[in-house]
Every structure is written in structure tokens, then in C-alpha cells.
């Protein structure tokens, strides 16, 4: 059973890379898992990577007790509004950010440990009809929210104690922003995707909207996951949850697109499609460096090398049923795959 899960089921090629099972954690009190993530946590003079699991009404922090064993450290109970997602804050220690709401995000909260009071607590950062949120390096949070009349984009700088230090308004594009990604290595640059299938660029320091660029209408509702600038081009990793299968390239899951921000022109660099012979399509996914992972409608998790456009491993649905969540750990190289019943398995 275990061996079967470790071998990637690729019908058409060598199994050069595979997923190696590391450990499992199971929360028997979790009725329905909604998200999983990792967070850096400093305690007793050392900093370690911990796992965070979320159900609709609670968020739990797990610490490694032994190489293959996890223990729950604390559970924050959030019973008034359901938890929708965990929002990773890169490079941030001892703070978990969560989005709560009914159909869409209504508030964003920080969950943290206060050494002053020796207690776990949570604090409210933002409320509204929030369409998209992303955590950036240096404890910054960007969100888009919508009123009847207008769209508001805001960056909040967070203090170590979970307060908001500073707020910067960003100029909104005409279309609703659906996702954000920081431009790696450029602290003041942010990109976003829009409901009109454009990629937009902001200057976070000034709030200026610098450029709006068409992605092309072949792949509607693109979601940006990662962006970096190289040799004067802006490379953006997009996923395509609503893309239709085509004869020439199958069902696309991720695409790397190169934009020239000066001219707004773009060209596709690489496609990552569902592995051949696998029915279904992309449901949701995560990107870390050049690795993409996604849950498919078949209940499997697939992993790709995004620069080679190659599916490198598949986790078929196991005895516990369909996979529901696929996330990369903050360190990369570790995949967290989760079932709805609260079981999370870590693979290297």
C-alpha cells in the first residue's frame, strides 16, 4: 500500500523523480479540512518549520516531535465566521494569517503567540468583500476588495505583534483582481491577474499601476502563482482552472509566460499539462520555485517541473479517498497533501 503510493504512476516514461513519504499527521477532531500550510516558529531559542491545518472553525499548529511524528501545539477556535484559507506570509515567524468568510473572504486575521502575556491570541487586520489576498516578504499583506462602486487595493505592513504599522493604497485596474504574486527579488514590484485575463504590475512603494498586459483569450481565468524578472523580461507562472482540453496540448494545468513589461507583449515559454491517460482537470494547486503541484478532479495530486513542462510524479487517491489539498512547504522540496478528513501526508 505504502510502496504503491510512493511510485509515481507515469505511463509514458522513466520514473526519474518520485515522491518519498516522510510523515503523516491526523487530526481526529477535524470534521472537514479546508487548508494546510507551514509556518516558521521560534520557540525556546530555535526556529523550526511547523505545520498549520485549518478546518472551518479552527486552526491548529503542529510541531515535529520526532522524525515521523507530529504533535498539536495549539488550536485557535474561530467559531463565528468559517475559515476559508491560510494565507502564507513568507519569511515571517510566529504569525499565521487566515482568511475567513462565507462565500468570499469577509475578514483577514492574524493568529499568533504573545510572549508578553504568554498566550496565543488573534487580531483582526482587514474586513470587507475581499476578492484576493497575498502575503509578501517583510510582513506585508496585499488584498483587493470590492464595494458596489469600486475596487480597493491595499498593502498593510504588519508589526511583529500582529498590529498594522502602515497602509498603502494601490491604484486599481478596471477589472477585478483575482490573484497576486510578488516579483521575486524586486521588493517593490507586485503582479496580479484580473477577471479580464490580464496581468498587471504595481509599484508597491508608490501604489502606481505600471502596466496592464493581455494574457490571451485561449486560457481564460488565469491565476498568477509566481513572478520573477530576468534579462528585462517578466516571467509569470499561471494556472488555468477553467482551461479546456485541446488536441494539441491536452489539459493545461500551469503555464510559464514571458512578458516584456516595456511593450506589454508576451510569449508562452512552457506548458505543463495533465499527465496523459489521466481523466479530469486541474482543481487547485501551488507553486514553489520551478515545482508545481495540483489536485486533479480525479482525486490525484500531480507534480510538475514547470520549466521542463514535465509531470514528474502522481499521487493517486489513497485508501483515505481523494486528495483535496496540495501545498509546498515554506522551505520547498516538501509537499503537503491533504484529505478532507484532516489527514495530511508529507512527501519529499
Amino acid at each position: 500500500d505504502v510502496v504503491e503510493q510512493l511510485i509515481p504512476l507515469l505511463p509514458d516514461g522513466p520514473r526519474e523523480e518520485s515522491l518519498q513519504f516522510v510523515s503523516e499527521l491526523k487530526d481526529p477532531s477535524c470534521p472537514c479540512a479546508v487548508d494546510v500550510s507551514t509556518v516558521w516558529w521560534a520557540a525556546a531559542g530555535r526556529r523550526e518549520l511547523r505545520v498549520v491545518t485549518a478546518s472551518e472553525s479552527s486552526v491548529s499548529l503542529w510541531e515535529p516531535l520526532a522524525p515521523d511524528c507530529w504533535g498539536k501545539v495549539h488550536t485557535w477556535h474561530l467559531r463565528e465566521i468559517p475559515v476559508i484559507q491560510i494565507v502564507p506570509l513568507p519569511d515571517t515567524c510566529n504569525i499565521v494569517c487566515v482568511a475567513l468568510g462565507e462565500l468570499e473572504i469577509g475578514e483577514i486575521r492574524l493568529l499568533l503567540y504573545s510572549s508578553e502575556t504568554d498566550s496565543f491570541k488573534h487580531s483582526l487586520v482587514k474586513t470587507g468583500n475581499i476578492k484576493a489576498v497575498v502575503g509578501l516578504k517583510d510582513r506585508r499583506l496585499v488584498s483587493s476588495s470590492r464595494t458596489m462602486q469600486e475596487q480597493q487595493l491595499e498593502m498593510v505592513s504588519l508589526s511583529e505583534t500582529g498590529g498594522s504599522k502602515d497602509r498603502q493604497t494601490l491604484m486599481p485596474p478596471e477589472e477585478t483582481v483575482t490573484a497576486f504574486a510578488e516579483v521575486e527579488g524586486m521588493r517593490e514590484a507586485l503582479v496580479g491577474t484580473t477577471a479580464g485575463n490580464s496581468v498587471v504590475i504595481w509599484n508597491l512603494k508608490t501604489g502606481q499601476l505600471l502596466r496592464k498586459m493581455d494574457v490571451g483569450y485561449s486560457y481564460p481565468a488565469s491565476i498568477c502563482h509566481r513572478a520573477y524578472s530576468d534579462s528585462g523580461l517578466l516571467f509569470v507562472v499561471l494556472s488555468h482552472p477553467h482551461a479546456k482540453e485541446s488536441e494539441s496540448c491536452g489539459s493545461p494545468a500551469f503555464r510559464v509566460v514571458a512578458f516584456n513589461p516595456r511593450t506589454g507583449r508576451s510569449t508562452g515559454v512552457m506548458f505543463s499539462c495533465l499527465p496523459p491517460g489521466r481523466a479530469g482537470r486541474y482543481l487547485e494547486g501551488d507553486v514553489w520555485d520551478t515545482a508545481g503541484a495540483a489536485v486533479l478532479t480525479s482525486g490525484a495530486v500531480a507534480v510538475w517541473d514547470l520549466l521542463q513542462g514535465r509531470c514528474t510524479a502522481v499521487l493517486p487517491p489513497g485508501p483515505a479517498g481523494h486528495w483535496a489539498l496540495a501545498r509546498w512547504a515554506a522551505t520547498g522540496a516538501v509537499l503537503l497533501a491533504g484529505h478532507r478528513n484532516g489527514t495530511v501526508r508529507l512527501y519529499r
Binding site: 491604484m171 524586486m186 517593490e188 514590484a189 504590475i201 509599484n203 508608490t206 502606481q208 499601476l209 505600471l210 502596466r211 524578472s229 534579462s231 528585462g232 523580461l233 517578466l234 514571458a258 512578458f259 516584456n260 513589461p261 516595456r262 511593450t263 507583449r265 508576451s266 510569449t267 515559454v269
Partner: peptide, 23 residues
């Protein structure tokens, strides 16, 4: 991808676009 497909490329695109965009 070639420069002819994407147009002239600038290594300082972020600074240039920030200088040109409305404040």
C-alpha cells in the same frame, strides 16, 4: 523568445515604467 517577438527589452523596465506612469 526573440526581441522581435516581444519588442525592445529594457533591463530597467521597473524604474522606467514607474517614471512614466501616473502618480
Amino acid at each position: 523568445c526573440s526581441e522581435s517577438d516581444l519588442g525592445p527589452i529594457s533591463l530597467n523596465w521597473f524604474e522606467e515604467l514607474s517614471a512614466e506612469a501616473p502618480p
